[in-house]
Structure formats: C-alpha cells, structure tokens
Design a protein around this nucleic acid. Structure first.
Lengths: 350, 350
DNA sequence: TCGTGGCGGGAGAGCGCTCTATGCCCTCGG
DNA sequence: CCGAGGGCATAGAGCGCTCTCCCGCCACGA
C-alpha cells in the first residue's frame, strides 16, 4: 500500500540493464547472458518486483483467467433477485458433483498459474453478463457446466466466437468442444451388477427425460436388463435431487411392492431411494439392492454406503480445462470431444 | 475471434467525437450533452463495443475481481500433488457451508459487476501463489475462509498490506476485518431447546478444540445447561465431518447410554450422530433429541430433518464482500468486525 | 584485413484506457 | 459591444508491459 509497486523500469535501473532485458529474464525468452540473468534476478528480489498482469495482458491479449460458468435454466423469466441467486448457488453446490468439477479444474489450471472465475448464468441477464465479461477480455474462455438441457448459453458463446468447452454433449449441436461420459455403459454396469446379484424385479429412477445423459443411462440399463431376460423395467422420472428420488421411489414402490433392485441415475436420488425403502421396512441390500450413479461423496456417507457407477468427474473437468487451454493457445481450432468410461464401485448397497 | 475487438477509438470515430467523450459516456461521469450521449450510445451499439478491462485497470488500478480463498492447514509439509489438491477442493465443497458462502459472495458482488476468483491455499506454495496473485494486481483483495485455526495466510496478507476480510475471528489477532457469528448465543439456543424438551441427560459433540468457534459454542451450551441445573455435560471432540460425528457419538454412547439429548456443533456431525443413534436402536427425537448447528442443506435432507442453530452464512458472506469493497474503495481504513446473531430453526430432531 | 553471420542487448512503438490540462463557444453582465 | 465565466469537448500524456526492429560485438572464414 505504501508508495508504488515496483515496475520493470525500477528493476531495470536497479540491475543496470534495459526494460526489455528484464522482461526477457522474467519470461524466460531468448538467450540472456547468465551473469546478467543473475543480476536481474537479484534486482527483482531486492525490489520485490511482481509483473503487473493488467499491463501484460493489455499487450498479450491473454489473461491467465478462465470463467467457470454454472449455467441454469432456459427461459428464466424476469430478473433474478439476490435471494434466488443465493439459492441457485447453494443448490448447485449442494450436489457434490460441482465440488469435484471445481477440484478437477483447479488441479489442471493451477500448475499453469491460471485461475477460475466463478460465474452463475441462471437468468438472461446473468448470461449477458457472462458474455460481456468474456468479450471484455476478462477471461480467456469459459468452462460451462449446464444444469438444464436447453441452456442457451453454449449457442451464444459459439455465436460470439468465444472459446468455450462444455461438460456433457449439448442436446442441440453446437460448435464447441465438450467432454462427456459413456452413459450407456454406465447404465449397463448398473444392470450387470443387479443381474449378478440375482435381482429379477428391478426398477429405475431416471434423471430428467430432457437430459440426454438420463436417456442414455436408462437405455444402457434397459438394454442390458432385456438382454439378461428382463425386458420390462418400470421407470420413474426424477430430477437429480434427493427429494425427487424420494418421490420417485415412493411411486415405484406403490406400484411394484415386490421390487428387488433399483438403479438410480445419481447418488443423491439413490440416497432418497434408500430412505424410502428403510421407512417402508425394506432392508438395503438384503431386501432391495440399490445402485447409484456418480460415486460422489454422498455415496460414501449414505447408509448403507452406495454401490455406484463412478463418473471420473475430476478427470473430466481437467480435460475440459485442457481442451480450453488448447483452444485459447490456438493449438486446436476445431471442436473436439473427449469421452470417458464409467466404472462400477462396489460398496454395501448392492 | 474475427478481426479485432472495437476500441474506444473506433466508437469515437463512428460517433464523430473524441475518445474522452466516449469514455465519459461509458463511465457516466461529468456532464455530456444529451444529444451527443445518444450519438455515442448508438455508435457503441453499432460497433458492439465492450471496454477492455486490462486497459482500464492498468490506469485505474482496480480490477473488478476479488479472490475468494479457501485456506487450509497450517504447516503443510511438502508440495501438494494434484491428487491431494483435488481432494481438498472436493472435501471443502462436501460441506454445504461453502456453497452458501459462494452464494452470498456472488450475490453481493454481481450487482457491482465484480466476480470472485476461486483459490485454494492448502499448502505453503499455494499460499505464496495467492500472495503473488494479489500483489500482481490480479484482484483487488481477498475474502478468506480458513478451515484451520492456525492458518498463516491472514497474517501474511496483513503484513503485505493487501486488502482482505476474514470469515471468523482469527485466533491470533490480525489487522484485518472479519465477520463472525455470536457462537456463544448459538450454544445457548441449543441448550435452551433441549432444556425446553425436558432433556436432562445431555451430551455434546464439539468442533475441534483449536477452533475458537467450537469453544464458544460449547461454552454457551454448557453455561446455559448449568444455569438450567445441569452442570455436567459430557463432551466428545469432533472435526466438523460426518465421520468424526459418528465416532464421537459412538464414544459418548458407550459411556452414557442413557443420554436424552445431543448437541452437535455442526449439521454434518449431527447427521453422523443420528446415524449412530439409529443403528443403536434409539429413535430421534423420541428417545434422543438432536440439535445441529449451521442450518445447512443437510439439516433439511437428514432423516429426521434436523433442528439446528441457523448461521446466516449468506448474509455473513455478503457482509465480507461489502467490507472488502469498502476497504478497496478506501472508504474504510481501519479493520472492522461484524457480528451476526444465530437463530434456532426447529424441525423434527429436537 | 575485411565481410558475414549470429548472438545478446537497447530503443521505442504501441496495447486501450483514463484523466488532467486546455481551449472553444455561448451566455450574460456591465 | 466587450470581457468574464462556465459548460463541454478535445488533446495528449501516461499506466506497465511486450515485442519488433535495430545495432554493436565477437568469431570465423576468405
């Protein structure tokens, strides 16, 4: 706070060289005489110099910052009050999924000393703010995690020609890179597990139908059950939340009290499924086996701990960051997609 | 991506005025002839101009960005692997507390069109990175949430004269503003609830002893119980995690099988307490009443839903952001502290 | 000896913005 | 009718950095 921060000029004077030389040493470009390098380094040390990023990015047109955008519903009528926005953020992070995304992103970014700016785009104004932010050059690009299938943000970003990478393939094709999971295989793994346990009467709590991932998980599950000789699988639609899992299971149980196995399309709903089963006097896994999806932290803390289809979220998030980095650096110009394979993690629930 | 982004110069040419005039219109300073204002606005519209933030902050020395730092353990020997870092982030966000902090911060910041950069400072290198980041002028200041009592970051920030605001009063006095909760009163509320329900044998799962908040919650609880005629309250120390709640409750139950009421110093541990009680055949709240702390999202999703001492985390986080804003703008020069009052939220567990 | 090429360093032109100093012009009082 | 003064716009100087020239020096070959 006292005085002014030292500048390149100050360091140069201290070291008895020119600005350009100091810049070269700082950025490690071109050959600089080792002796002079040392001089400069000493001068930097002595002055406590730290390059001013605003000045640097003014000329390089790179910021060392990416936007990590959690994008919400489609229409979003009216403006978002502070209250609603708070709720959105809290809801988003209530799903352990996002913590893992953040972890993976930061894990990749930090060694490159770039950092994520957290943004929420749950309303039209918020979306505009994101676009404005990127167009102003505040960040080099965006990592987008949509919570809603017909999120308009990806299209807006693509249209504006802003570098962006999506988590999950968008329903409507968009010229952006994305990472995704082989959801069908995930459904298959869940079915195989239930079949292997000898469950014959099985049901499933799917994710929202509008979400492509839900459909694929369901398809993988159903196809595999059919192949195993069980062509009929009752389905109740959930919304990836605990409450919706509770409601869906209650519904299923009312119509199919003899169910022996349940596949829930994420762990939060699986937790709800377990709650309902226990309340109705069913033991998990003795009476009913339950398989979740994600292998998130609730899978481990749930009682009983959930057998779950693992989604390598951290790796996927890191891959997003990598793709974005490549786009920003111009190493990659065409949209690409990276697909990850799920894996079954066996615990106690199935 | 195509061509160059329009600059002030372009807009000025388009509108037939000078750069300075456009700048004034954009920033809304000084009187500008309304007719010219319109001209300029039209030109801005037509060119799709967006002010370049790097250039702006180069001269204003403000960035419109704050660092939101989640700061970890004290020593942290050795460097942090990407794995460990991932785990840290996931662990941090596993506690719904942080989602609420983020929500509150974003809620305050967004109307001021500033945004938080998420940083983790769980190792010495990561801490240095935070300092470097701030000293480089990447952000105007830092909002710090420590997960560990002897976190050295606050002192480092204060020493470097960087604007920062802490969540919770630091153990060692530091010349930084902070927000906090009246934890003692929170403990009192919990005790009053249990006393009102007629619980006589009560026990408590405290937070880590090194954390001042834990001690204050405990003190408020004990003092109030004592005043109610119950001077002896068994305590087991937990670590604010679900597992630690489980362990602590198991321990308490072994020594005091006749317990009628339990106060856990946060909801995550309260959830663990409920799990253990159920496994040991105790009904909540019929046999044992349980009061949690925080009123976080797990309080609502726990079975049974937890009666909990509400901590207005969103408001506290917003207050942090406000304090920081005032420091950055120079409206406030001396460290200040803002204290919030807890509130009892009654659900089913007590 | 001089020419040539390559390496290491310096000079200086911006990057896009803000803001102070300056100057124009119009109005109003004397 | 002239001078003073105030409202509004402009000119231009940076903010701190990068990067493209350019130049000097030395080693080497002719």
């Amino acid at each position: 706070m006292n005085r002014h921060a030292p500048t390149l000029e100050d360091v140069a004077r201290e070291a008895g060289v020119s600005r350009a030389t100091v810049s070269r040493v700082v950025n490690g470009v071109r050959n600089v005489d080792p002796a002079i390098q040392d001089q400069v380094r000493v001068a930097i040390e002595r002055t406590g110099y730290a390059p001013n990023r605003a000045a640097r990015s003014l000329v390089t047109r790179r910021t060392g910052t990416v936007a990590l955008v959690v994008s919400g519903a489609g229409d979003g009528t009216g403006d978002t009050s502070e209250e609603e926005q708070n709720a959105f953020a809290a809801r988003v992070f209530a799903d352990p999924f996002f913590g893992r995304v953040v972890g993976g992103v930061v894990g990749f970014l930090r060694p490159r000393s770039t950092h994520p700016v957290l943004m929420f785009a749950e309303s039209p104004e918020a979306r505009q703010e994101v676009l404005r932010y990127l167009r102003q050059g505040n960040a080099d690009g965006a990592l987008v995690v949509s919570t809603h299938p017909d999120d308009p943000l990806p299209a807006l970003l693509a249209e504006a020609g802003l570098p962006a990478v999506l988590f999950a393939r968008p329903v409507r094709p968009v010229a952006l890179s994305h990472v995704d999971l082989a959801h069908w295989d995930g459904g298959r793994l869940a079915a195989e597990r239930l079949l292997a346990r000898g469950c014959r009467k099985v049901a499933t709590v799917s994710g929202p139908w509008a979400v492509a991932a839900s459909q694929e998980r369901l398809a993988g599950f159903r196809d595999t059950m059919a192949r195993g000789g069980h062509p009929y699988v009752p389905v109740a639609e959930g919304g990836f939340t605990l409450d919706s899992g509770v409601a869906a299971m209650a519904e299923l149980l009312a119509e199919h009290p003899d169910v022996e196995g349940v596949f829930a399309a994420n762990d939060l709903m699986a937790q709800g499924v377990c709650q309902v089963l226990r309340e109705r006097g069913r033991r998990v896994p003795d009476d009913v086996a339950v398989v979740g999806f994600d292998d998130s932290s609730v899978a481990a803390t749930c009682r009983p701990p959930l057998t779950s289809v693992r989604q390598p979220v951290e790796d996927m998030a890191a891959a997003m960051a990598r793709l974005l980095d490549e786009h920003v650096r111009g190493l990659r110009t065409e949209p690409a997609s990276v697909l990850f394979e799920p894996e079954l993690v066996v615990r106690e629930s199935a």
